[in-house]
Design a protein around this nucleic acid. Structure first.
Lengths: 228, 228
DNA sequence: GCCGCTCTTAAAGACTCCTTAATAACTTTT
DNA sequence: AAAAGTTATTAAGGAGTCTTTAAGAGCGGC
C-alpha cells in the first residue's frame, strides 16, 4: 500500500514509460488497460494513489471515479487528452483531486503525484522506533516506554539516548557524545555526561550499577548494546 | 478557521471578484495585496486554504510558500499568469498543492478549491471522536464531555485540544501549537499558550495541578497522553 | 452603554533540569 | 598489590522554565 500506484490507461506504451519513471522514484506501479481489469485489481489490493485516464475502451475514468468514491477516498489524478474546462470541472466535482491534460511531461506528473501524496499521507511525520530489551524509544514523538509504561526523560537525557540509539552497537567517544548533545563548541565537563548516563541507566536499566544495555567503554566512551 | 480563505494577489479588482464568488459558496475570504500585508494577517489568524499569486510587489508567491512551509501545512494553490512548466513544477516542489494558470474561470477555481478542501479536511461527514480517561472529544461537532456531562470550551481552547488530540501520544512543541492554533506567524506570547493549557486542565483534569493527560514536556511543549 | 465572555499579557512563585564538585569505586599498569 | 588514571555516584546551587493569578483589552449581545 505504502507507495503503490495504480495507472488506468488503455495506452499500454505510455503506461509503461510512466511506470518506469515512477518506479525510479520509489513508487510501486501497477497498470490496468481497462475498467474491468482495474476493478479486479481493486478488489484484491488497495493503492495509495490512482492515475486515471478518462477515455477507456469499456467505460470512462469519470465512471470509475464515481464508483470508487462510493467506498473510498483514495487520491485520484485524472489524465486526459480531453482538455476542455468542462471536463476538468467534472473531474473535480465527482471527486478527483487533480487533472492533468495530456500530453504532460514526466517531471510535471512526478511533481503532482508527489504533491498529492504529501498532502494525503505526507505531513504526518513517519515514526522512527528503536528498541532494546523491554525499552522502546520513539525518536519521532520523543517518547520512551519500558515494559509498556511511559518513561519520562528530560531534554538532554533524551538527546543523549537518541544519539546512542542511532548508533546502536557502536561505541561513541565522550567527545562525540558531548558535541552531539551539547553542541560542537560547548564547554561542559565530562562529568556532566557521566551524570546523564547515570540517570539514563536509573530509568532504563533493571540494575543501574550493572548495566546490560548502556555500557561503558573504558577510556573511550559509551555504547548501546543490542540484545545479547 | 473552518472555511476561511486567504487570497494574496496585488490585483485588488480580481481578488474582489473572486472573493465575492467564493463567499457565495460559503467561504469567508480575506484578501492581501502584498507579502507584507499577508504576513501581518497570518500573525493573527489561521486560514483553511491560501490562494497565492506568484508576482507580488514586494516578494514572490514562491517565497511566501517557502516561509509558510517552515511552520505550517496549510493547503496552498498557486495562481499565476506565469504558465511555464518550470513555474508549475517549482510551485509543487516547494510545497504547493495546486497550480492554476491565469486567466482561469471562476468555476474552475471553485472546483479546485472545493477539491483541495475535501482532500485536506474531509471526507468528513463521518464523526471523529477521541477519548482519554472519562473525556470524550468530538472533533466534528466540536463538543466535549466529561463523565457524560457537556464541557463548554472556548474557540481557542477547543482548537488547542483538537490539535493535541489529533497527535495523541506525541509531544507537540510550543511553536507547533502556536502556529496551528494562532496562525502560522502568530506573534502571541508563549505565556498565552500556558494560560490556555491551564484552562483546559481546569476543565478536563481531575486535579489540574497534577495532570494525568495534558502533560508538560519540559523545554519542548505539551503532550496528550493516552491511558496509562 | 453596560455587562459578560474570551483572549492576551505581565509578574511572582514553584518547580525542573543542568551543571559542578567531591568522594567512592573501579580498571589498568607497573 | 599498589599506584595512577578513569568512571560512578551523590547532593547541592543556580539558571531557566512553567504555573498560576489577576488585570486589562476587545468584542458582541442585551
Amino acid at each position: 500500500m505504502e507507495r503503490s500506484l495504480l495507472i488506468i490507461d488503455d495506452d499500454a506504451d505510455l503506461s509503461f514509460v510512466i511506470s518506469d519513471m515512477l518506479e525510479g522514484y520509489g513508487y510501486q506501479v501497477t497498470c490496468a488497460e481497462s475498467a474491468e481489469e482495474a476493478f479486479s485489481l481493486l478488489e484484491n489490493k488497495s493503492f495509495a494513489l490512482i492515475l486515471l485516464d478518462i477515455n477507456l475502451p469499456d467505460s470512462t475514468g469519470f465512471e470509475i471515479c464515481r464508483e470508487l468514491r462510493r467506498v473510498s477516498t483514495v487520491p485520484i489524478i485524472f489524465a486526459s487528452a480531453r482538455t476542455s474546462e468542462n471536463d476538468r470541472i467534472s473531474g473535480f466535482d465527482i471527486g478527483g483531486d487533480d487533472y492533468l491534460p495530456k500530453p504532460y511531461s514526466m517531471k510535471e506528473l512526478l511533481s503532482r503525484v508527489n504533491a498529492l501524496m504529501r498532502r494525503t499521507y505526507g505531513y504526518a511525520d513517519k515514526e522512527t522506533v528503536v528498541s532494546f530489551g523491554s525499552v522502546r524509544v520513539n525518536i519521532t514523538s520523543r517518547t520512551v516506554t519500558k515494559n509498556g509504561e511511559a518513561v519520562s526523560l528530560s531534554l538532554k537525557e533524551f538527546d543523549l539516548l537518541s544519539c546512542l540509539c542511532s548508533h546502536m552497537g557502536t561505541a561513541l567517544s565522550k567527545e562525540r557524545l558531548l558535541s552531539e548533545v551539547w553542541g560542537a563548541f560547548s564547554a561542559v565537563e565530562p562529568s556532566t555526561l557521566a551524570v546523564h548516563i547515570r540517570w539514563l541507566r536509573e530509568k532504563l536499566e533493571d540494575d543501574p550499577a550493572q548495566p546490560r544495555y548502556i555500557k561503558t567503554v573504558y577510556k573511550v566512551g559509551y555504547i548501546l548494546e543490542a540484545e545479547e
